[in-house]
Amino acid sequence: MLVVNTEFVPGFEVTKVLGLVQGNTIRAKHVGRDIAAGLKNLVGGELKGYTELLTEARRQAIERMISQAEQLGADAVVNVRFTTSAVTAGAAELYAYGTAVTLAGGA
């Protein structure tokens, strides 16, 4: 499965547009990480725990989007975009969406 955020996949021809595919996940923070982040707020700098949490969550949203594309029999997902929203205080939703397409040709 090719995943790109351009409108076309370079070297391939889009033969069929299968429609929108999407994946989301909502994650709540961990209390321990929150305390560590609070301490980090005094001196500034990267909050590694949050970076890891969001990296992992975004990867899961992408995976869910890909599995939806696989069900449609797609070869690639093009024009992938992300949004993040605060569902409740302390929880974030990560959402990935794109267009599933079938491809022909190849480099």
Binding site: V3, G11, G44, E46, T51
Partner: peptide, 21 residues
């Protein structure tokens, strides 16, 4: 020049950062 592309993949980078007191 899409014809000469040998490999294509989406890449991602992210960071969470805070200000100091």
């Amino acid at each position: 020049d899409p014809g000469s592309a040998a490999d294509t993949r989406m890449v991602l980078g992210q960071v969470v950062i805070a200000t100091d007191y």
